[in-house]
């Protein structure tokens, strides 16, 4: 084991995949957007579609102010998407399956959202925790509940992504272990091992869907939180 200082400096598997993921996104977008053809090729179409998809999502969810936050949402979406997708490659590593990574992302989101709200509304932001028209004598009950609800956002945001990724990979591991155990049993078992193997093939397709969906959910929830921060009520 490394010493206390060196353990902070180690460059792990997760970091390598993060760098690869970020590099892949930059590579896709830079060389995809480079031709600037009027009739886009496949690569350029992919780059433009991914840009427009997130751009429309930001505008739809946040409103016209969403333009300012589009780069943030775009980066977040593609970082999570690359983490989920690269993790499905055998011998790779899913960095979004670590709560440390997802919690750091969710904390970043909530700090930025709160900072945006404070910048836009100043101290009026704190009226967010008490809905208009509610009876004042209920304030001691409503305000703590609203604050807990607000603070639970980063927790649920990070747990949702982390749990989905872990659950998918655990299912892969369970069915793959069935293949190994049955395959080692007997000639009959080797035939039976085809079934869990087939299930794993189907699961791979399902996990591709989950990977894209969870990245989308992460991005759209960030947009919804930004909407609340910009519009408050």
């Amino acid at each position: 084991m490394a010493g206390p200082t060196a353990s902070w400096l180690t460059f792990t598997q997760a970091n390598i995949i993060m760098v690869i993921g970020a590099g892949l996104v930059l590579w896709l977008l830079y060389f995809g957007a480079k031709p600037k053809a009027v009739v886009p090729g496949r690569w350029q179409a992919a780059a433009e579609l991914s840009h427009d998809f997130i751009y429309r999502m930001a505008i739809d969810q946040i409103g016209p102010e969403g333009k300012a936050y589009f780069p943030f949402v775009f980066t977040l979406f593609f970082f999570v998407l690359m983490g989920n997708l690269l993790g499905l490659i055998p011998f790779s590593f899913t960095y979004t399956s670590h709560i440390a990574v997802t919690a750091a992302l969710a904390l970043m989101v909530i700090v930025i959202v709160t900072a945006v709200a404070l910048r836009e509304h100043g101290l009026k932001f704190f009226t967010y925790f008490f809905p208009d028209g509610a009876p004042v004598f209920l304030a001691p009950l409503i305000v703590p509940i609203e604050i807990i609800s607000y603070l639970s956002r980063p927790v649920s945001l990070s747990i949702r992504l982390f749990a989905n990724m872990v659950a998918g990979h655990v299912m892969f591991a369970v069915f793959a272990s069935f293949v190994v155990m049955l395959g080692g049993a007997s000639i009959l078992g080797a035939v039976g091992a085809a079934f869990p193997l087939a299930i794993n093939v189907v699961l791979m397709g399902f996990e591709l869907l989950v990977a894209a969906l969870q990245a989308y959910v992460f991005a759209i929830l960030t947009c919804i939180y930004l909407h609340d921060a910009v519009h408050l009520h």
Partner: peptide
């Protein structure tokens, strides 16, 4: 709904638990 009941159940469970964890 993302098309499946499992997803809904997981989402609702996470929401319930995360508020409790924070509290």
């Amino acid at each position: 709904d993302s098309g499946n009941a499992l997803g809904v159940g997981l989402r609702v469970g996470v929401e319930l638990v995360s508020a409790l964890v924070v509290a």
